[in-house]
Design a protein around this nucleic acid. Structure first.
Lengths: 191, 191
DNA sequence: GTCTATAGCCCGATAGAC
DNA sequence: GTCTATCGGGCTATAGAC
C-alpha cells in the first residue's frame, strides 16, 4: 500500500473519531510514525487531504451499489443488503458510520471542495434509493399510505443517518437495527 | 438579560455553526465585546459552559413538550406541532437544528458531562414519542405494518435528526418537510 | 520522500490589578 | 466583574537540507 493510501486510511479513522476540525496532521503523523511535513508532501493542504479521503470513500460506496445493481433480487432485498453493510460496519466499530453523514454536521465550516463532495454523495444515494423503489413490481407498504417514491427515498436516507448517529451516541448497534427494521417494514410488499 | 445568559446565547449560536471543538472563547468574547478572561469568570471551563448551554436547551424543549402534553388533540396532531416547531426554526435559519443532534456527531471527543446530557435528552425525547403513540385510540398506519410503538418512536427521532442534517446540508427546508410528511403519513390513522 | 526547523497564528486557562 | 498579560500548548503550512 502506498504511503498516500496509508495517510488516507489513518485520516479516515481520525475524521470518523473527531470530525474535520478536531483532527490534525500531527495525529496522523504520530500514528504512522512520520513527520507532519511528510504529509504535506503527499497532500498539500488539509482541505485537499479530506477531499481525497471523501472521494475515495464515495468510490467505495459507488462500487458497492453497482454490485447490488448487478444482483438478482427484489428492491427490498437490495435495500436489506445495503443496511446490512452498515450494520456490519457498526458492529465492528461503533464509531464507523458514513463519513459524509459525519462531516455533514460540520457543513458550515467545511472547505468548498469537501462540502460539494458531501452534497453530491447524498444526491447520488437518494437517486439510487429512488430508482430502487421505482423498480418494484408490486405496491409496497409505504405506497398504501400515499407516500411518493422520492419522499420515501429521502426518508430512508434520513433514517439511516439518524440511526447511525443514535447507534454511535449510545455505542449500541441495536439502535441502528431498530431503524433498519422500521424502514424495511415500510418497504415490504403491501398486504 | 444577565451576562451569563448572553454568553450562553452566543455560545449556542457558535456551537450550532461550528460544533464543540471549533468554537472558542475568543469567538464569544469578540461577538459580545468583552475579554476571554471574563467568560472564564462566569464559566470556569469550556466543558462547563457547554454543559450549561445544553442544560438550558433541554429545559426549553421540555417545556415545549409539557405544553403539548397539556393540550387537547390526537397524537398525530401533537407530533405535527412538534415537527412544525423545528420547521419554523429551520425556516428562520438553516443552521438552527437540534443542539443535541449536532453535538452527537462529536460524541467521542465530548467531555463526559456534555455526553451525558445528550444521551439523556435523546432518551427523554424517545420516551415522549413512545408515550404519544401509545395514547392513540385508533390503530395508526405503521401498526398495520407490524411495527411496535418503541420502534416507531426511535424511527421518528432518527428521521427528524437525519432530516435536519439534510436540510442544513442543502440549506433547504424542503428536505426537512419531506421527512416530516413521510413521518406523519406513518402516524395517520390506518385506512 | 522524508527530515528539522520555524513562521504565524489560535487555543484554553490562570494570575493579579482595578 | 472585567481587565491586561501571559503560560504552555496546539495548529496549518513552508523553507530548505539530505
Amino acid at each position: 500500500m502506498s504511503r498516500a493510501d496509508e495517510i488516507m486510511d489513518v485520516a479516515n479513522h481520525f475524521i470518523l473519531e473527531r470530525g474535520y476540525s478536531a483532527f490534525s496532521y500531527a495525529d496522523i503523523a504520530g500514528e504512522i510514525g512520520i513527520q507532519k511535513a511528510s504529509i504535506h508532501y503527499h497532500f498539500p493542504s488539509k482541505a485537499n487531504l479530506v477531499q481525497s479521503v471523501v472521494g475515495r470513500y464515495r468510490q467505495q460506496i459507488k462500487s458497492n451499489l453497482a454490485l447490488l445493481d448487478g444482483m438478482e433480487g427484489d428492491p427490498q432485498e437490495k435495500l436489506t443488503q445495503y443496511l446490512n453493510y452498515w450494520e456490519d460496519c457498526l458492529e465492528a466499530q461503533a464509531t464507523d458510520i458514513c463519513l459524509c453523514a459525519l462531516l455533514a454536521s460540520e457543513i458550515p465550516i467545511l472547505p468548498d471542495e469537501v462540502r460539494s463532495e458531501i452534497m453530491a454523495h447524498f444526491e447520488e444515494l437518494t437517486d439510487w434509493f429512488t430508482r430502487l423503489l421505482k423498480e418494484s413490481k408490486v405496491p409496497l407498504q409505504y405506497t398504501t399510505a400515499d407516500v411518493s417514491d422520492e419522499e420515501m427515498a429521502h426518508g430512508i436516507l434520513a433514517g439511516i443517518h439518524g440511526g447511525m448517529l443514535a447507534a454511535r451516541t449510545f455505542n449500541d448497534v441495536g439502535q441502528f437495527r431498530m431503524i433498519k427494521s422500521g424502514l424495511l417494514h415500510q418497504i415490504h410488499p403491501a398486504k
